[in-house]
């Protein structure tokens, strides 16, 4: 088991965070959030991976056949559903911001501070 997927996961998390911190465009910012979340997919799938194992479907093979962990795959799927909800809501806010105020720059949108 290599460390590569874990490194990729950490990289995605950090690069996504950098994007969020530095972004001046809401759509870009929301996609960066999606990148941060992709790191959790990679992490979860890497945790369940076994070298040389097949998919966790035992219909035609003996029960002792090595398989990758199906639990983390279920978690990843739930995670995807959660993300699509969050991203859809955020994009709706971005569309509304653009419609009402003609800008996608978080700095121009802000009315509360201090």
């Amino acid at each position: 088991m290599s460390f590569l997927p874990y490194a990729v996961s950490v990289w995605l998390f950090l690069v996504g965070l950098y994007g969020i911190v530095s972004s001046r465009n809401l759509i870009h910012l929301i996609i960066c959030l999606a990148v941060v979340q992709s790191s959790t997919y990679v992490l979860l799938l890497a945790i369940g991976y076994r070298t040389g194992a097949g998919a966790p479907v035992f219909a035609a093979v003996p029960l002792t056949t090595p398989a990758v962990d199906p639990v983390v795959q279920a978690l990843t799927l739930t995670d995807v559903v959660v993300e699509s909800t969050v991203v859809a809501l955020l994009l709706a806010i971005a569309v509304q911001a653009h419609k009402r105020f003609g800008t996608l720059d978080p700095e121009e949108l802000r009315s509360i501070r201090g």
């Binding site: 806010i93 971005a94 509304q96 911001a97 009402r100 978080p106 949108l109 009315s111 509360i112």
Partner: peptide
């Protein structure tokens, strides 16, 4: 714009 900004920062 206030609620939009609040919801966005929150989310």
């Amino acid at each position: 714009s206030g609620p939009l900004q609040g919801a966005l920062n929150f989310a």
